[in-house]
Design a protein around this nucleic acid. Sequence first.
DNA 1: CGATAAGGTTTCGTTACGCAACTTGCAAAA
DNA 2: TTTTGCAAGTTGCGTAACGAAACCTTATCG
Lengths: 162, 162
Amino acid sequence: MSRKRFQDMNCGVAQTLEQVGDWWTLLIVRDAFLDKTRFSEFQESLGIAKNILSDRLRKLVENGILEKERLDEPGARYAYRLTKKGRDLWLVLTAMRLWSDRWVFGERDVPLVAREEDSHREVAALLAVDRDGDPVEPGKLEWAPGPAPRRRAKRRNAGARR
Amino acid sequence: MSRKRFQDMNCGVAQTLEQVGDWWTLLIVRDAFLDKTRFSEFQESLGIAKNILSDRLRKLVENGILEKERLDEPGARYAYRLTKKGRDLWLVLTAMRLWSDRWVFGERDVPLVAREEDSHREVAALLAVDRDGDPVEPGKLEWAPGPAPRRRAKRRNAGARR
DNA sequence: CGATAAGGTTTCGTTACGCAACTTGCAAAA
DNA sequence: TTTTGCAAGTTGCGTAACGAAACCTTATCG
């Protein structure tokens, strides 16, 4: 009678939820993007119970989304930092932010903004492109179920795992 | 001692999680994208308990992500369909799918594919653009906390709510 | 009328969450 | 050297959410 797991579902959404689908997890990741690194920083920022935070951080480290580093500084024991895998979640966070921007906040301002370091240009939208980089019309999308045996052609970034 | 709510957090990620952050909710939305409309279809597809499914469907309808329609067909039943707000979640699902494609599945195939209706070109990546539509370098992003009083300039699609 | 099916609701046991109190490790103050 | 103090947890306990199965309701079919 334990909580159902999504491990065996052959679906990317389910697999992602398996790793970051817990109630607090994505907010911890969001805070990590905001350069929070310490246990107490997450705790104060989120108002999360310490045992829950402890558990979520452990799972995030286990899943390779955060890495735990021991610090020598006085007053600071550990630092939790995003790995490459963790930083790659920015698209998920951005998609959620943009959705809420439109459907929840309405005209209110949102506090988390992604922007280019140099120009400070903000990410205002996400654009879907095919494997050649050509835009795909969002209004004319259909979803196809699988399993579709397809070869992923030439990935820009090889060496995906770690 | 109820579960902590994210309502009051002035953060788009939190607001989105408040509506679709429950354990099963995004999988129900995914199934809705796959043209499932009936209670029993969701139930069989997901293996979710009926009371949980009932509760999640109700909340999704309350939040305007699904709409419940009474059908006249024999066997008289209901259909749950995505609203515009619900269909707008495709970016979130796609971002999650692409992430798992890279970090979970590795070389395995994924079963949920978004593609253009006419050309059948698949969405292979999401591209961040600024408000002028110019691409923003993903590698050089920084995250800024708010609240940043910014005016959202000329949205492509006005009339956001409904 | 009885059987069957969709779409739930109820009941009940287990798991997860939330809170407070306690523990541990280290470092600086007294 | 003892004490204080903070970071980073762990433990115990009560409540809320979840999961499975049984039950209910409405409608159709024979």
